[in-house]
């Protein structure tokens, strides 16, 4: 399911089946050097493709929420707190699994303070998303993440 009216309509009718929430975490900044800016937009694109695919194949169980954006310069402890607020919101619905998807390694250190599961993916700093090589890498990572999510599912 996506953050769309039509999908929400379907969600409301079948809440008990859609028990997995995915929230992408992406830093935002406009003040870095050119390289940083290119890298940020590239990561955004990859995240889009990535979660789009995930949602498409597991539409009936995964709800893909809008990206959580934060200033690249902000203190991560504050963001952890804010994100836990998101988690509280999600938990008012029957979600059993909440996954955060990110390329930003900053979160990793604070994982233990975070409600929900952090899935951190290393990624190339920059690249061309339309290139065959990049596609292959993305598809491969995608498969690994879905395997991981399915492993969580099968534990219940």
């Amino acid at each position: 399911m996506k953050w769309k009216r039509q999908d929400m309509q379907q969600y409301l009718k079948s809440k008990e089946y859609i028990d997995t929430a995915i929230v992408p975490l992406l830093p935002f900044s406009m003040e870095g050097n050119d390289e940083d800016l290119l890298s940020l937009t590239y990561q955004h694109e990859v995240m889009d493709v990535f979660t789009e695919r995930l949602e498409k194949e597991y539409k009936g169980r995964i709800f893909r929420f809008p990206t959580y954006s934060y200033l690249a310069t902000s203190k991560i402890e504050d963001e952890v707190e804010r994100l836990n607020g998101y988690y509280e919101q999600l938990k008012t619905q029957p979600f059993q699994f909440v996954f955060y998807l990110t390329f930003d390694a900053k979160w990793k250190k604070h994982e233990k303070n975070l409600e929900g599961q952090l899935l951190w993916l290393p990624i190339l700093k920059d690249g061309d998303i339309h290139q065959e090589e990049t596609k292959k890498v993305i598809l491969d990572q995608n498969e690994q993440i879905t395997d991981l999510i399915r492993a969580y599912w099968s534990e219940t």
Binding site: Y17, Y58, G60, R61
Partner: peptide, 25 residues
Amino acid sequence: CTHLGCFVGWNDNENYPEHFYCPCH
């Protein structure tokens, strides 16, 4: 899948060989 729209796989669940299986439900 005609239930809620996940993609089914062929023969990829050992409990259900020779079937299309939906991993979601």
